[in-house]
């Protein structure tokens, strides 16, 4: 990745217009206004923001679109919206509202052709495929859908290969086992996938401190997603970037 700076991406789980964060995909806690938080992270040096609408439905679609429009006006850095995108029209609505990328998860598993349709229509660069995996045995990970509640027939590696072939532009790889635990990213699966995949891979799930981010970058992640460690105020994006820089990771410091 010579030449590309490693990206730090705060993730905002959004539920009906508020930022929430849970553990193991449950137990939600209110953590603030998404636009305010995103702007704060941007000024602190975030390279991108990911918004995941965790309770997306037709009823709260207007709220989500309104949030995306506000975010687009306020942010000068790229952002991704995931959650509840089931059709090309859904994807268009959020891209048109100003999202730079959309993340597909359960809908890509249910209708994999959505990935190539989206890639053809809007370009691979705006199609992120979000993959939630759970360890079954050493080296064997299964893909889950519906926020980690439903198992699928896919292994992590076979599904990654398929979404890349179908035109995904980026992977957001989340470990369900680690999410919200603070035990660090599951590099046993993230490293082989990041090293073998010809598109960028974002490590996600389990980061609690700078050492976790450093390990992910040293072991091949193109970008890291983190939520609680930033939301809690314990870590500040800029300080983390300066610490990473001292540890030899190329990051963007002139924000």
């Amino acid at each position: 990745m010579a030449g590309l700076l490693r990206r730090i991406i705060p993730c905002l789980d959004v539920d009906r217009g508020r930022v929430v964060k849970g553990t193991h995909f449950v137990e939600l806690r209110d953590m603030g206004d998404p636009v305010e938080l995103a702007v704060r992270y941007q000024s602190e040096g975030a390279d991108e923001i990911v918004f995941l609408d965790i309770n997306a439905s037709a009823d709260n679609r207007p709220t989500a679109l309104d949030m995306v429009r506000q975010v687009a006006r306020s942010l000068t850095i790229p952002f991704t919206l995931g959650g509840g995108l089931r059709t090309l029209d859904d994807m268009y609505a959020f891209l048109d509202a100003g999202a730079d990328k959309v993340a597909l998860n359960s809908s890509a598993l249910a209708q994999p052709q959505l990935i190539e349709q989206g890639a053809r229509q809007f370009g691979s660069q705006c199609i992120v495929v979000s993959i939630d995996v759970k360890r079954q045995a050493a080296g064997y990970y299964r893909v889950y859908s519906h926020g980690g509640r439903k198992g699928t027939g896919h292994t992590a590696k076979s599904w990654v290969r398929e979404v890349v072939e179908r035109g995904a532009g980026e992977l957001l790889l989340t470990s369900i086992d680690r999410d919200g635990t603070g035990d660090g990213y599951d590099m046993a699966i993230t490293e082989p996938i990041a090293r073998a995949t010809p598109i960028p891979v974002i490590a996600s799930g389990g980061a609690k401190n700078t050492a976790h981010l450093l390990e992910a970058f040293k072991r091949g992640a193109d970008a890291v997603l983190a939520a609680t460690m930033f939301h809690s105020g314990e870590f500040q994006v800029g300080q983390v970037k300066r610490d990473l820089k001292r540890a030899g990771i190329p990051v963007r410091l002139d924000y």
Binding site: L4, L5, D47, Q125, G169, I199, P200, A223, R252
Partner: peptide, 12 residues
């Protein structure tokens, strides 16, 4: 000519 395409992210 790069290891991962598209180039996506920040560069000097």
């Amino acid at each position: 000519q790069a290891p991962k395409i598209p180039m996506m992210g920040w560069s000097q």
